[in-house]
Design a protein around this nucleic acid. Structure first.
Lengths: 322, 322
DNA sequence: CACCAAAGTGGAAACGTTTCAATAGTTAAT
DNA sequence: ATTAACTATTGAAACGTTTCCACTTTGGTG
């Protein structure tokens, strides 16, 4: 492999000079620069990024640690994250943890050994104490404490919005359905917003949560449909859960939206080919992704941030289910 | 940062010895090993992977270069690819090219500079001539020539299977719809199989292709629906196109599957919550992903492969549209 | 007991950069 | 013509490993 030394030899200058030409650092005479550039051309030289990373003791690699890229919400997020990283010449490393704590820690260790510049974490477990202080992290939808900055959609307002939209659509007894997740999860605020708005409006409501992880999906839904036959509106904590509910309700002869209005959360449907087209609280995925990376860049550059949690507004996207 | 030297000092041995302990290479007395391990513990030392990569002139990083991770087919693929890589301690770098040739080349350059161990390429353009020989590549669904090994589903058999299933479902005049893609694309064999099987069975058929990229989607479908009102079966080159067709047909009062049977290709629906549930030729995504990586490992280890193209069998997955 | 092979260990070179102190070259003012 | 003040360049050290050669120790054999 041709190295900076070969270029220096051919151009008749010292390696330091070549380095300065490549990096546009320090002063170089136009004439010298030309000679060096010619040598680079001639030898088809390109800098060894690995050697650079080694010398500099830092890389332009950011890791995205999430449960599964297969999840459409995450894959959209990943798309924009990669795009934003690329704008600054950063690269993305993808790590699927499966949501397993031990795998999360395993990856965290690996990332430390690989001296990544930063981490975007979407984790189920509290990684706060297992991460060395020197590596910047921004998490999405999980708020641990001040070491890790959190970006999230405005779950609380989303919950309020969902309740209002259900009521607007005619629901008299709306229900929130979801799974109990980590105490650190920001998504629980969807429930909180839902409840508060129902109370503010004086609306009767139901909360129905399943323990996470799901042991018996069928049992969960059957019990719900049995117990709460008077419910005429559903706010599901995710679009997938909403779709799942609708499918099961349909089998029991419950019509959506005629009998029951349904609103999901996420906005994963980006094409109108599959039905039902969900009414949903749309997360501004692109904005979240880009903000996450910009915050991460700030942390990498040691700029202290003024907030611990950044909440991005959501919008209601009307589909066929309200 | 604590280095191998600190460990050596504390343990009272030479750096070489510590290295041998860490890598289990060469002989080390049990007693010495213990001392070193204690020092490692005490200092909370972990090896600097970047320095290692530098010294070894190779990394355990594999890049996945594809149009967009947002595409559900690719995100499933990426999931399994990462999983298979991880089994051998390899890491995955994700690159979205947007299908743009210049971005593909830009990434290829970057990957070369970063000395990745290998590349999985899902590209729209012929990258064959723009890649240095020394970096192993396996491509998915694109067959350029012998330098790049190709993994693909058995598109030809998939096409034949689709035709047969349409006929079985009662179609008398099936049509193939798709976009004209790169000549290197293996996916064109879907059409070939479809045609051959139709001819073999003596069935009347229609081929309707749109130029890629799509300039006017509406015009495309309107023209097709106009011109070919006698068509009673559709084999769409992808599931997304099938779903798109169904939606448009529905608006014109065409019922699926009563009036027209539809079969897609890919098998992207992994949950039964959204309708229509497509009848489709399911690509064995997991198997393709794992085989791709195993072939890549072989190339990395300089094992010569016996084939240029590896075709994996597909299956017909019956949905609601036939 | 002397010798030898094998096992264990030390030490230094090398990988390709960047950076920095030291040196050389240039310009402009006296 | 000398000097001062820059500008440009050189050359070497350093980053944290691995590897290889040379040296030392160990254990077994004649």
């Amino acid at each position: 492999m041709t190295s900076i030394k070969d270029v220096a030899n051919l151009a008749g200058v010292a390696v330091g000079t070549v380095s300065r030409v490549i990096n546009n650092s320090g002063a170089v005479k136009p004439n010298t620069r030309r000679k060096v550039e010619e040598a680079i051309q001639e030898l088809n030289y390109f800098p060894n990024e690995v050697a650079r990373n080694f010398k500099m003791q830092k890389s332009k690699m950011v890791a995205l640690l999430l449960p599964s890229i297969w999840n459409p919400f995450f894959s959209e997020l990943a798309y924009y994250i990669e795009d934003e990283l690329d704008r600054e010449g950063f690269k993305l490393m993808l790590c699927n943890s499966g949501g397993k704590p031990e795998k999360e820690l395993y990856y965290l260790d690996m990332l430390r050994q690989n001296k990544v510049a930063g981490i975007v974490g979407i984790t189920y477990n509290d990684i706060e104490n297992n991460i060395s202080n020197d590596i910047p992290i921004v998490s999405i939808d999980r708020h641990f404490n001040k070491k890790i900055t959190c970006v999230t959609s405005d779950n609380y307002e989303g919950g309020r919005l969902a309740l209002r939209e259900l009521v607007n659509a005619g629901s008299r007894k709306p229900a929130f359905i979801g799974s109990v997740t980590s105490v650190f999860s920001e998504t629980m605020n969807r429930k909180k917003g839902f409840i508060h708005e129902a109370q503010a409006l004086g609306v009767d409501y139901v909360i129905y949560e399943k323990p996470d992880p799901i042991v018996d999906d069928n049992a969960y839904f059957n019990e719900f449909l049995d117990k709460h036959s008077d419910v005429d509106g559903i706010f599901a904590i995710t679009d997938m859960l909403a779709a799942n509910y609708i499918e099961r309700a349909r089998r029991q002869g419950i019509r959506v939206p005629e009998d029951v209005k349904v609103i999901g959360y996420d906005g994963i449907q980006d094409n109108p080919y599959f039905h039902p087209i969900l009414s949903t609280i749309r997360q501004p995925v692109e904005e979240m992704a880009r903000m996450t990376i910009r915050l991460l860049f700030s942390k990498i550059e040691n700029i202290t941030l003024d907030q611990q949690v950044y909440r991005i507004p959501v919008i209601f996207k009307k589909g066929e289910t309200t």
